[in-house]
């Protein structure tokens, strides 16, 4: 049933002109975090929150990009930019982990590593699994689906970002999308998204978005604007189905009876 929701989202995004991305689940921290201008001492990158894998570090990373990303972390980008004044080690960047978000795919595509250099305009998306190293309960699993998307154009504004979401969520009957200014290391401005479901009238957080910072785009060699977002598929699906326990939607713990009685999503 979550699969049906994922398929529905894919159909909607393809209809809106988005191309689908594909890429590794186990990836270098470089692609998962460093390229995103996430400082290496960020709390989310500490020992316990990462889903580190017991394998040797990644063999190949684009050398020029590696250097450019390190410079952005240390010195910032542009004449008026500041870096993080945090330690940066290539060794850490090369470690392999399960991706904590599918933005690693966006980094691979924007850098040209996936399909070569891209010229604006572009729209890309994925609806794929990401991983969180935590304990399981009724609203959190170790694995979840992220709806990842980005738009590349010469000039993009916050209004374009808002308009894209209004269009997307309207397809699911969510018409009152609200934007709350937020902080992300990789986007500025950044917004959390809230949606009011037409049936329950509840205001729920449905995603996170923003315009990529120059510290992200400049090392990747992107000279135009890119706006991006990560949305939770499970939130959308729980609204659809009325499921209260996420373990019914997804995973080896599923109750077949629940799946058999679930209404079809179209």
């Amino acid at each position: 049933m979550l699969r049906q929701a994922a398929e529905r989202v894919k159909d909607v995004l393809v209809g809106m002109g988005f191309q689908e991305m594909d890429g590794p689940h186990a990836d270098a921290d470089f692609w998962i975090n460093d390229a995103l201008f996430m400082p290496q001492d960020h709390p989310a990158r500490t020992h316990w929150d990462r889903f580190a894998l017991d394998v040797d570090p990644i063999e190949e990373l684009p050398e020029e990009l590696l250097q450019a990303v390190e410079n952005a972390h240390r010195e910032g980008v542009g004449p008026d930019g500041d870096g993080y004044h945090s330690p940066w080690s290539e060794e850490f960047a090369r470690e392999v982990a399960l991706r904590g978000h599918t933005t690693s795919l966006s980094m691979r595509y924007l850098s040209g590593a996936a399909e070569g250099d891209l010229e604006p305009p572009q729209r890309y998306f994925s609806v794929e699994k990401a991983y969180r190293n935590d304990t399981i309960d009724s609203t959190h699993l170790l694995e979840f689906f992220q709806i990842e998307g980005w738009v590349m154009a010469e000039e993009l504004s916050v209004r374009d970002l808002m308009g894209t979401f209004e269009e997307f969520y309207a397809q699911f009957g969510i018409t009152d999308v609200q934007f709350k200014p937020h902080y992300n290391p990789y986007t500025e401005p950044s917004f959390e998204l809230f949606g009011r479901h037409p049936e329950t009238d509840e205001l729920i957080e449905i995603g996170n978005s923003g315009i990529f910072r120059e510290e992200v785009l400049s090392p990747l060699g992107v000279e135009c604007d890119v706006m991006a977002w990560g949305l939770a598929l499970e939130r959308l699906a729980m609204l659809y189905t009325g499921a209260e326990d996420i373990r019914d939607l997804h995973g080896t713990l599923a109750d077949l009876e629940f799946l058999r009685n679930a209404e079809v999503i179209y």
């Binding site: 809106m16 988005f18 191309q19 738009v151 916050v158 808002m162 401005p189």
Partner: peptide
């Protein structure tokens, strides 16, 4: 930001899986 009027980006792209 709430006072900004949303608009759909005026660019053409082709979607696909």
């Amino acid at each position: 930001f709430d006072d900004l009027k949303p608009k759909y980006p005026d660019i053409g792209t082709i979607g696909g899986r």
